[in-house]
């Protein structure tokens, strides 16, 4: 095989895996939008907050230590213990559930029946609040996330594919990041679990009922408040998974909240209401932007990925305004 062909395959595979990483963020948006019609601007910050909390708990950091030290003149930063990873993850999930309860009780509860734009604005406020709260709680320094995930390219794959190129061609073997491979597996498990949950469990069906029609769901005795808490908790869990995967790449830092920007074209393309749409959308965006950067990027100065993802999404929107898997809305006039 020619090296160029193999490099193209490599770009496609890496694009697929990058797409999975985008999908992990997009999933959180979809879950909340499906259940409540809210475009949750705070989803990226939720990933940041969850990752900050995980590292903080894991490393035994004293929350609000800066504030405590400033007020009481103390100098405490760490408890001096390390919490096992799984326990730290469980505790972080607990924190995200508490967060979901607080959001429902103090924000959503007061905004029932408000216009979607009001709810959207509320999530903008929530995002800024959480970013500042996370800063006060855990500090703004960059934290190393170590939950035992592998990193680096797969040596086995590199060596295995080294001889695939035609003789005389410069080829260094296929490169795939082990972290991306793990992220792909996690995403598959996550999507399958979420699908089973929403299709085959009572709570899942209630969740879908609420998504279809709030008032009809209320009339058959489904508690809107409980459902919202459950949905925001699941979105918090998905945010934690996204935060772990992205945080393992770059360290946990405040730029993590910007990963939401990578999810937007995925949502536009896949639709705001479809879990498979978030995955397929992510894959298309991932492959599309990587292939464009590989083939066309060098001719036009590079750094095309950020804008090309949106161009790609818009191209799909021309033909399917509701996104590939979004629900077609038909309203009687």
């Amino acid at each position: 095989m020619s090296a160029d062909f193999l490099y193209t395959i490599e770009v496609i595979l890496n694009g697929l895996m990058a797409g999975v990483m985008y999908s992990l963020v997009a999933l959180g948006f979809v879950l909340i939008f499906k259940a409540s019609g809210i475009f949750n601007y705070a989803q990226g910050v939720m990933a940041l907050f969850a990752a900050l909390t995980l590292v903080g708990i894991q490393t035994g950091q004293v929350p609000f230590s800066h504030l405590i030290n400033a007020i009481f003149g103390t100098n405490v930063h760490h408890f001096g213990w390390q919490v096992p990873t799984l326990l730290a993850i469980a505790l972080t999930i607990g924190v995200m559930v508490v967060f979901a309860i607080i959001v429902e009780r103090y924000i959503l509860h007061h905004l029932v029946n408000q216009e979607p734009i009001i709810l959207f604005m509320a999530t903008i406020g929530l995002a800024y609040f959480m970013e500042g709260f996370g800063d006060i709680m855990w500090g703004s320094d960059i934290k190393t996330l170590d939950v035992g995930l592998p990193s680096g390219g797969s040596l086995w794959l590199e060596e295995y594919t080294l001889g695939w190129a035609a003789e005389g061609e410069q080829y260094y073997g296929m490169y795939l990041d082990k972290l991306d491979m793990v992220a792909s597996l996690v995403a598959i498990v996550l999507v399958v679990s979420l699908t089973i949950f929403s299709q085959y469990t009572t709570t899942g069906r209630a969740l879908r009922a609420v998504a279809d029609d709030h008032q009809a769901a209320l009339s058959v005795g489904i508690s809107l408040r409980t459902i919202w808490v459950i949905v925001w908790s699941i979105a918090g869990f998905v945010a934690l998974v996204a935060g772990i995967m992205w945080g393992a790449k770059s360290g946990v830092q405040f730029s993590l909240s910007l990963i939401a920007l990578k999810a937007l074209p995925v949502l536009m393309l896949g639709g705001f209401t479809s879990i498979p749409g978030a995955i397929i959308g992510g894959l298309i965006i991932g492959v599309g932007e990587k292939l464009f950067e590989y083939a066309i990027g060098p001719m036009i100065g590079g750094a095309t990925e950020n804008w090309f993802a949106y161009v790609l999404a818009l191209m799909f929107l021309v033909f399917r305004p509701q996104g590939l898997f979004g629900e077609k809305i038909i309203e009687r006039v």
Binding site: N14, Y172, D177, S250, S255, K290, G301, G302, A303, N306
Partner: peptide, 23 residues
Amino acid sequence: TLIPVDHPGQEQKSQWLQIRRER
């Protein structure tokens, strides 16, 4: 060789695949 990375730079897979190819 000029290799730009867009803000904020959280995702750089394309750039580093290019570096790996071009060495």
